[in-house]
């Protein structure tokens, strides 16, 4: 549920980056590959509505992001886009479940604790619901981040280098987890990475140059 056309971005220095057109449908997974410094993070921020492109359109769930601004864009992002960052940050003062339901209450939805519990259970985090996030291992934190990204059933799940710090076995486990969630929630999954191990797991690939 992501569609881009002729997107480019202009850095402050004046250098311009052009990105290929991307289209990802629901339940589909896609890799955006490229070496370091090629603008992967920039593209992720553009797709997530965290930046505005210089040219082109980005549509998520049929909504052109450029037509939204300020508060509306923030709300739309909270509702329709789930992002899993390479470094997973949480609200330190809240426990695991509260961190997940916060994604709902921040955009004015009612906190659905049952769904949060169900997701945690599904991701193998039963028993960790009331822990503070800093008490969890790196792998557990990543799974909490995934739960948080999908709690609102977003049309688009963006993941930034979700596997680069993991060994081969966990690399596949985490990818399957993301893929599984995307299928369950009818989302499109877009992974931005330089991790070539994922090439064997995902058919759709776009290489940034």
């Amino acid at each position: 549920m992501l569609k881009t056309r002729g997107v480019s971005f202009e850095y402050k220095g004046g250098s311009v980056l052009k990105f290929p057109d991307i289209e990802a449908k629901e339940k589909e997974s896609m890799l955006l590959l490229g070496r370091s410094g090629i603008g992967k993070t920039t593209l992720l921020h553009l797709l997530g509505g965290l930046m505005q492109p210089a040219t082109g359109t980005i549509a998520v769930d049929q909504q052109d992001l450029a037509l939204l601004s300020g508060r509306n864009l923030d709300r739309f992002r909270g509702n329709h886009i789930g992002i899993v960052f390479q470094q997973n940050h949480f609200i330190e003062s809240l426990n695991v479940v509260e961190n997940i339901t916060l994604a709902q209450t921040l955009i004015g939805l009612k906190a659905d604790r049952n769904r949060a519990m169900h997701l945690l259970d599904h991701l193998g985090l039963k028993g960790k619901e009331y822990k503070k996030t800093h008490q969890l291992s790196q792998g557990e934190r990543q799974r909490v981040a995934i739960a948080r990204a999908v709690i609102n059933k977003p049309g688009l799940i963006l993941a930034d280098e979700p596997t680069s710090a993991l060994d081969d076995i966990h690399c596949e486990i985490v990818f399957r987890m993301l893929e599984d969630q995307a299928i369950q929630e009818n989302s499109a999954l877009v992974i931005v990475t330089h991790d070539t191990r994922l090439k064997d797991l995902v058919k759709q690939q776009i290489v940034l140059q």
Partner: peptide
């Protein structure tokens, strides 16, 4: 980071 995260999750500047 928490503040940036809140923005990502749909909080406005206000």
């Amino acid at each position: 980071y928490e503040l940036a995260l809140l923005r990502v999750m749909g909080s406005g500047r206000g």
